[in-house]
Design a protein around this nucleic acid. Structure first.
Lengths: 212, 212, 212, 212
DNA sequence: AATGAATGAGCCTTCATTCAT
DNA sequence: AATGAATGAAGGCTCATTCAT
């Protein structure tokens, strides 16, 4: 794989017309489909272009190289996932801390369902080029933001977490979910899995607050 | 047409002479070095052979295909890592459950130093072909063995964990450590980080045992 | 892993531009030249591409694999040979059955001159993969067509031949010619040789029709 | 394939001891088995050595290169075939010309049964290197010898065939049989096939003698 | 803006052959 | 005589990328 561009955004040509945006969207969608259907092995620029119904030349008009394309889908998938989490958190009712934690975990797990292969492939591709860091930032930010929310409120069970503590919970939680995705664990959909994740987070939060 | 091999062991020829064993060792070492130096992208059979100071034909005499080679290093690296953890656990004194947990976590963190890229690359390669399951056996064995140890003793705080629970703790713990490594977090060496990990695991274990 | 193709026609891409058709023609011609010059041993995809003045990638754009290429030249050579036979049959005058048989035999012998090595190589290649059957269709069609012609006319000496009989005459005839060619027999050009072949075929046809 | 030796006989070392002869026999038998089982594609020197239960080095002690090995089996197979034909001709009873012809044809067909793949592979290999001529000598000799026999006797239906005539019948006959073998025609075992061959030869012989 | 034919570096793999033991 | 580990030239094939139209 050539290493030329690291940018998350298309670089060659910034779409300025409606048609161009459609083209970019088609390419991105085609890429996601290829990934979902055949994994990273089937993910060739030619295959993506064909699936997108676009010529290979056009693809290169919007994505400087294969890398740029991968980063673009990664970003797209990530945004979509975060959006779904945010969405899922909107409707939540149970205001207890555990209720909130569970809501968040469920939202995340849910966000990770569907197009699992594509997600896995993207993850793998990103990781294999050491470009993962940029993508973690939004996740961390999201967690921090909602962690804060959880700590707030009348019940206020939790003290605020410091940096390392925030790091540990968030990465531990994501680590478990990510592993389930990457290893294609069947219990990803089980209620028991969700329960254990809730237990993990809650136990940690309580322990931290007890120590304070 | 090539006949694909999935075995962890070299398949083509089982070394019968001293020279042959040296050759296999050289290839494995060469492979690890290439991986460490250039990651998966640089990992070509020709490069490995050259680094190992062996002809490409010789490499294929012992490893049916590129895959077999990757599996072999994966197994080797894994054994080495587990060995280092085991080693680190030997010297431990504090017999309390928390002492044991801390010892293990410290051992793992320690084991994660050196040849990180190679380890990462191997992991990626294995994961990207879905062939990882076979490699889990030794890990499971190791965990079972030490879980038993941990659960032993007068205090006996913990009940045995079931499959999903084991998955959650282990992956959460590894997820946090891995993230710290990959993101090159400075607090990787801090005692505070270790403390939080211990807190996480202990809190979870207590919560599980309390629920039982 | 490559996906094997058995089709007689280029499969990868059906030429849609004039340039593409030229390219395919160039490849086919290059392949025939390589075969003629160096036989099957020299027939490597790289050599063909180079001789054709085309990149190896381009070759594979039109021929899924080496096999597809061989089948394509085989089909081409066969068509050409049949064409020459057909051509040679045009000018014939003597309308008697023997006259027709002789015309055909002479046409075949004539058709066997030039690019002999290429023809031989193609034949060998096809046979060595057992894929020859598909190529028999045109030959069968040709024979049927001309057999009908021969059987026509007032004299109507011949009954239609059944499958084994057709096989026997055609292969016997071709066997004798082929042997003469391969062994480079000097009498290949003698009228006497042609006479004997005619005698062989006529005698057989008469025997069959007498038995019916 | 390297082109070094064209000799029919092992060249490196002429077996002078019983053990050596056994070794050569084992290699030849192994080669025939490999050919029968996997065709020309599976016929690698290493595979032959292994099947023969001999080291690759030993194989090269007796056969200078792969070619020499192929020629050796070809010669062996040919001798065996001729032997079987001779054998089959011994017991023949029907002394009529047609009886003799049929006996010979049946003997030849019979000789071609069994190990068809090996025979085919050998034939192909020989032909593809243009080295076939040397192998024809024994066949020609055999045919001449027996042709004479057939023409002899009280009934004496046939005049002696001249060179081109002998060539035509023999090659036509062999051509039909060879084609049936190479194309793996199922009717190779049918009585009808034999009948047609007999008809072909007899018709030709009668035509020649009638003309004389 | 788009097309798609063309490119070619380079990968994986095979297998005939050698030679030290 | 025999062994078998080692060799390495060479072949088939892929795929990211370019550029003339």
């Amino acid at each position: 794989m050539a290493k030329k561009s690291q940018s998350l955004e298309p670089e060659r040509r910034i779409p300025q017309q409606a048609r161009a945006e459609e083209t970019v969207a088609a390419i991105l969608e085609g890429a996601a489909q290829i990934l979902e259907a055949g994994g990273l092995a089937a993910f060739t620029t030619n295959a993506v272009a064909e699936r997108a119904g676009v010529s290979i030349g056009t693809l290169y008009q919007y994505f400087g190289d294969k890398n740029a394309l991968i980063h673009a889908i990664a970003a797209r998938e990530l945004q979509a996932a975060l959006g779904r989490v945010r969405q899922a958190l909107r409707g939540e009712i149970d205001p207890s801390p555990e209720g909130r934690v569970r809501a968040m975990i469920r939202a995340i797990i849910t966000a990770f369902r569907g197009r699992q292969r594509a997600r896995k492939a993207v993850l793998l591709a990103i990781l294999s080029q050491g470009g993962g860091n940029e993508l973690l930032a939004p996740v961390a930010a999201f967690l921090a933001e909602h962690e804060a929310e959880i700590g707030r409120g009348s019940q206020h069970v939790f003290v605020a977490l410091d940096r390392p503590q925030l790091f540990v919970v968030s990465r531990a939680l994501m680590g478990a979910i990510r592993a389930a995705v990457l290893e294609e664990q069947p219990f990803l959909r089980d209620a028991a899995f969700e329960d254990e994740l809730v237990r993990l987070v809650m136990a940690y939060l309580r322990a931290v607050s007890a120590a304070a």
